[in-house]
Design a protein around this nucleic acid. Structure first.
Lengths: 337, 337
DNA sequence: AAAAAAATCGGAAACGATTGCACAAGATTG
DNA sequence: CAATCTTGTGCAATCGTTTCCGATTTTTTT
């Protein structure tokens, strides 16, 4: 039992606990001599002030809650990495939760965070339109929320996104330039502004070229990888199969690759593929994969910086609406040539 | 400001705060009628008891600290996923830290966790031999530690590992069976029992076959990806290059692929490759990669189960030495045929 | 040298929840 | 019918920090 507290240090040193506390926090109203005495003893005992007591008293926990729909996804992983890098520097900890693309899970997580466990929340929504009630709770409790990627439409707050429309537009344009006549757009069917924007970019590229697109090839998928791959196999098994694919999600790009490999359809000769993804090994795939990579790490670090700045400065209103858009990067490789 | 507390609820309901507290915790000594009154009001106000106050009083935070050397690595990611799955069920939160393969960072993280922020720590060490002083601190403060993968040799505790010697043995044997005469063993040069065991497995396979191995081909690498790839390129540029590779770390397998691709050396015809890795896309690489995958998710969930069982049951001594070994899985693909 | 200002430190009240103990009323027992 | 037991609730201490107010001593100013 670690019964060693500030009070204990105080008794050992014949000081009041208030003095010890101030010394530990390097207050100016403590003499250098006593400061040294306190610090020395604290160091020698590996003393670390009780985090819960401090949090209770200060009414802040110095930790930030992060909620992502899919932790295994490379994009979210890199975002978290970016968040952590900044948070570490600023002395904040991160508690990461996985909503598994499920709004109900997300609600439960948020509810469990209403009791002061975190000072703020960074979130990418499981579904942007279904419910925002739990986000209202946070506002009531005065817990700031920063959104990224999948942001809430009708809730004010800081929102970091990427230029989904433009990047999808460029990706599609590239496929058209390579001679594709019949491109499939593969998206996730949850209602997300991200998916919509990417679809719009897809359509815009066609319109601009004066080429038609097949509405039946704007396909929405669920979150079951096996099922997704199956429906892709049936899609590509047809003689009138698409000759190009824009995958608006990493898992769909992968599923496309697997399906085409299985059917022995040659990429890029029979089907060209471009996929949104942040995977690290796109250059090592067979064939190497043309990607649209979101600036994930930067997104995370930017979020954290903005948020912590707001937490530190009382004058900044973190509930005010503010939108920042960062550019993704299209990298053309074998799969679309 | 969320001024809504138990005391506030008590006043609203003309009850004592103790009664409200008991009602919220479903104590048997509160009548169903008052329980319902309390729960109803709490629900309608989205009340959630202050986590810091509770933690302070209870002397436990219901959160577990996780320290890994490299968060981006797929293996650690999956372990964390396994940890979280169990922790969520049991009502525990996870705070994940990245030591970036640096013992000093690791020490700092541990030190910052000495103040009751976490009830226990799950760790994979940055370096197993350099220092264990910070692990002693934890014992002094009575904070249980569970090790996984890179475990401490001289500190007692629960340790989860995988069968590194055997799996490296089988991987090497496979390469020898495929006709390799000159296999390089690529390891990380930090002192880890994992690396040593894998190297032993490598050697054992040679000995058993009565084949010699080249000691200069037992190579240790650092953590700089660019540098690693360079030295691999010089290795394979030589005429007398190896005809097989056993990579004992994911990043080294990747670096090998990149180096060989760059030098236009054909896998598997000129060099066969087997790599330890938990990447999801090994089957999609060019060529598909033969892998030894650790049971990462299972490792994480097993750790969490064991730990939480111990935290709940005072009779279990979490500081007692206990070793559990889980089997990895060798999957043979194109790169080694 | 007296007055004012600064430098140090102590006492005690918070922060919000849990819990041992006390106590009242009603139910049960001999 | 008195004595004992249950049941339901309130009081107050406690967890370990931080910080508002003073109080005392030392330094500076006039």
């Amino acid at each position: 039992m670690s019964e060693i507290t500030i009070k204990y240090l105080a008794e050992k040193l014949n000081l009041a606990s208030s003095t010890v506390s101030r010394a530990l926090n390097d207050s100016h109203e403590i003499s250098d001599k006593t400061k040294k005495r306190v610090l020395d003893l604290a160091k020698s005992l590996n003393f670390q002030p009780n985090a819960n007591a401090r949090s209770l008293r200060e009414q802040k926990s110095k930790t930030i809650g992060v909620i992502v729909p899919d932790r295994v996804n490379n994009f979210f992983n890199l975002v978290i990495e970016g968040l952590e890098t900044v948070c570490r520097e600023e002395g904040y900890s991160l508690i990461v939760y996985n909503s598994y693309e499920d709004v109900e899970q997300e609600k439960k997580i948020v509810y469990s965070l209403l009791g002061g466990k975190v000072d703020a929340i960074v979130i990418s929504l499981a579904d942007e339109e279904k419910e925002v009630q739990h986000l209202e709770w946070l506002r009531e409790k005065n817990i700031p929320v920063v959104f990224f990627d999948r942001v809430a439409q009708n809730v004010a707050g800081i929102k970091y996104t990427t230029n989904d429309l433009e990047s999808a537009y460029h990706g599609t344009k590239h496929l058209l330039d390579q001679g594709c006549k019949k491109i499939a757009f593969l998206g996730l069917s949850n209602t997300s502004s991200v998916g919509k924007a990417r679809k719009e970019g897809f359509i815009k590229a066609h319109n601009e070229k004066g080429l038609p697109y097949d509405k039946t090839l704007l396909i929405g998928f669920g979150h079951d990888d096996v099922e997704n791959q199956k429906s892709l196999e049936t899609l590509f098994y047809k003689i009138s199969r698409p000759d190009g694919v824009l995958a608006a999600a990493e898992k769909l790009g992968i599923a496309t690759f697997r399906a085409l490999h299985k059917l022995r359809i040659k990429i890029p000769y029979q089907v060209k593929v471009v996929s949104f993804t942040n995977m690290q090994f796109a250059d090592l795939l067979s064939p190497s994969l043309s990607t649209i990579a979101q600036p994930a790490f930067e997104l995370g670090s930017a979020c954290a910086k903005e948020l912590i700045k707001g937490l530190k400065n009382k004058d900044i209103d973190l509930f005010e609406d503010k939108k920042i858009e960062l550019p993704s990067k299209l990298t053309i490789r074998e799969s679309s040539k």
